[in-house]
Design a protein around this nucleic acid. Structure first.
Length: 274
DNA sequence: AACGCGCCCTGTCCGC
DNA sequence: TGCGGACAGGGCGCGT
C-alpha cells in the first residue's frame, strides 16, 4: 500500500479540504471493498447529512471523522487512493469504487484497481476494538526502545515479517521495513528475538528516520500510489534497497540482494546487514 | 496459539 | 502483437 507516510500525506492534504464539509450521498460501485457488515445502504445511511469534523490516521488507516463520533476508516490495501474530485485529473482514476458527494458540489473519490482496500464505518465502540487491535505508532512517544525490545523478545519470526505485523507496530509496510533494516544494519531474515539491545535501538531510530523523511518527500510512488491531490510521492529515488536488486549498495557498493520471505520480496545488502 | 500459506483482484512488464 | 508467468506499498482466514 500506501504505508504510514503515504497515509499521512493523504491525511494532511485532506484535512484542510474536508474539515467542515458535509457529505450528502454515498455511491458504491464495488461493494466488495466494504468491510462487513457494512453495505452500500448502511454506508449511505450512515454518512448522509453528516459534517466532517476532521481527518486523521492510525497506522496505515486514513480516518474521516464525522459528526457524532463516527469514523469512516479507509484501509488502502495495495492500490487504494483517496482524492477529492477537484484534484483528480480526468482519466487517471478509472477504478472508483466509492464516491462520497459533498454539499459544496465536490466529492471524495475512493479509487482502487485491485480492490484489496477496505472501508469500515465505526461507532465509538467498534473503533475502540479496532484501535486496540493495532500496535504502537512508530512516531509516537509510546514507541520506546524498551517497549520495542519487549515485543521483539517474544517472537521467533524473521524481523522483516515481524515489522509487517500491524498488531505490534502499526504503519510499517514492505518498503519501509526493508529500508529501516538497511539503515539499522540488520538482515531481514534475522529472527526478532535474536536482535541485540543495540540493534533494536538502531532499528527504532531507523524506522523513525525513514518514516519522517518519507513523509517530508510526500511518500513513495512505486507504481499506483497518488496523494490526495493526485500527485506522485517523491521518495522513490531515496530508497536504498527496496526494488534495487543487483544495484550497488549506496554505502559499500556491494550488489543488493533480493530474497523471498513468506511470499514477499525482501531486499538487503549482504555486506552491511548482518 | 504463533506462524506460514493461499488467496483476494487487476495491471504491468518481461521473455518467448 | 499476443500470451503466459511473475510480480506488485496488504491483510484475512485457514490449517498445523
Amino acid at each position: 500500500m500506501p504505508e504510514l507516510p503515504e497515509a499521512e500525506t493523504i491525511v494532511r492534504d485532506l484535512r484542510p479540504r474536508l474539515t467542515g464539509a458535509t457529505i450528502v450521498d454515498a455511491r458504491v460501485r464495488h461493494a466488495d471493498i466494504l468491510n462487513p457488515p457494512l453495505t452500500p445502504r448502511r454506508l449511505a445511511h450512515g454518512v448522509r447529512g453528516r459534517r466532517i469534523s476532521g481527518v486523521s490516521r492510525r497506522g496505515k488507516i486514513v480516518i474521516i471523522e464525522l459528526q457524532h463520533d463516527l469514523r469512516l476508516a479507509i484501509n488502502l490495501g495495495m492500490s487504494g487512493r483517496v482524492v477529492t474530485s477537484d484534484a483528480a485529473r480526468a482519466g487517471e482514476f478509472r477504478h472508483i469504487a466509492v464516491t462520497l458527494a459533498l454539499e459544496d458540489g465536490r466529492a471524495i473519490l475512493y479509487d482502487d484497481a485491485r480492490r484489496f482496500g477496505r472501508l469500515a464505518l465505526h461507532t465509538p465502540l467498534s473503533w475502540r476494538v479496532r484501535d486496540a487491535s493495532l500496535g504502537l505508532e512508530p512516531l509516537s512517544n509510546e514507541f520506546t526502545a524498551e517497549r520495542f525490545r519487549a515485543l521483539t523478545r517474544v517472537s521467533a519470526v524473521p524481523i522483516r515479517n515481524w515489522l509487517l505485523d500491524q498488531r505490534r507496530v502499526a504503519g510499517v509496510g514492505n518498503i519501509y521495513a526493508n529500508e529501516a533494516l538497511f539503515l539499522a544494519g540488520v538482515r531481514p531474515t534475522r529472527r526478532a528475538r535474536t536482535l541485540t539491545r543495540a540493534e533494536v535501538g538502531r532499528l527504532r531510530e531507523a524506522l523513525r528516520n525513514v518514516l519522517v523523511r518519507a513523509i517530508a518527500a510526500r511518500g513513495t510512488t512505486f507504481s499506483l500510489y497518488r496523494d490526495a491531490s493526485g500527485e506522485e510521492g517523491g521518495f522513490y529515488p531515496a530508497l536504498a534497497v527496496y526494488d534495487r536488486a543487483g544495484q550497488p549498495c549506496p554505502r559499500c557498493g556491494s550488489g543488493i540482494k533480493r530474497i523471498v520471505l513468506t511470499n514477499r520480496s525482501a531486499f538487503y545488502c549482504p555486506t552491511c546487514q548482518r
